[in-house]
Every structure is written in C-alpha cells, then in structure tokens.
Amino acid sequence: MSPTSGPAQALGDALAAEYAAIWAYGVIGVHLTEAARSAARAAEAAHRSRRDALILQLSSGGGQVPADRAGYALPYPVTDRASALKLAVEIEERTAGHWRAALPHTTGADRNKALAALTDCALRATRWRRTAGVTPITVPFPGRQT
C-alpha cells in the first residue's frame, strides 16, 4: 500500500494491517456458525498474537509504535455468511501483502518471522476460499497486489 522507507515503517504497516484484521474478524464472526465461526475465532487469536509480538518488537527497538484506530470503514456491507467469507479472504490477502512488503526490509530472524506471518495469512485465505466454495482456492503469488 503505502511506500515503505525502512524496517520500522514496514513493520508498522504490518501492525496496522493486523489491527484492521482483528477488527474485521469481530464483524466476520457474527455472520458465521459452527466450524466457520470457530475458524474465525482462531484466526482472530492468531492476528492478536502477531499484533502483540509486533508491538513488543517495535517498542523494544525504541521506535514509534502505531496505535490502533477507533474504527474502520468496511469496503462493502457485511450482512451475511457470503459477504463475511468474502471479507475474510480479502483481509487475509491484504495482511499477507503487508507482511510480504516487510520481507525486503528485514533480515535473519525478523525476515523468517515475516515469512511465517505471510504464510499463515495465505493459508487462512486458502481455507476461507474453500469454506466459501471459491475456486481455485489458491493464488499463484500470495500477498502480491494483482
């Protein structure tokens, strides 16, 4: 999305994406039932732990830690299962994109962490496509803007 100028900026962008994902899953979860609702809860928990790790990492680096926003605008009304699953796929691909963007700005253990986060987002996007009945359930370049 926004051009990044360094590791702190790139990880700050990833943190902003994690905040948005956590918020989105609150909206998504209420329109899902049973296994899909459990999956949404697990996804939200995974994003929370990435958020917490990022806050720790950015604050221990002595840099600025971006704060969460009070609210977000949905790209379209989320009113039922179909629109909730659509948003879940999009939020995971979007978050994957921010982690992907962090890769060139990181090295060593930090890059491996960014790759693990990118991979987890891509996997969840794939599972949500399967739940939604979207085919193909994979994309060739997870996180890359198309």
Binding site: L103, A122, P140, P142
Partner: peptide, 8 residues
C-alpha cells in the same frame, strides 16, 4: 516469500 507461501 510469495513462492514459499504459495507452496504451503
């Protein structure tokens, strides 16, 4: 990174 994630 995208290729690794895609293979996963």
């Amino acid at each position: 990174g995208s290729i690794a994630a895609a293979r996963a």
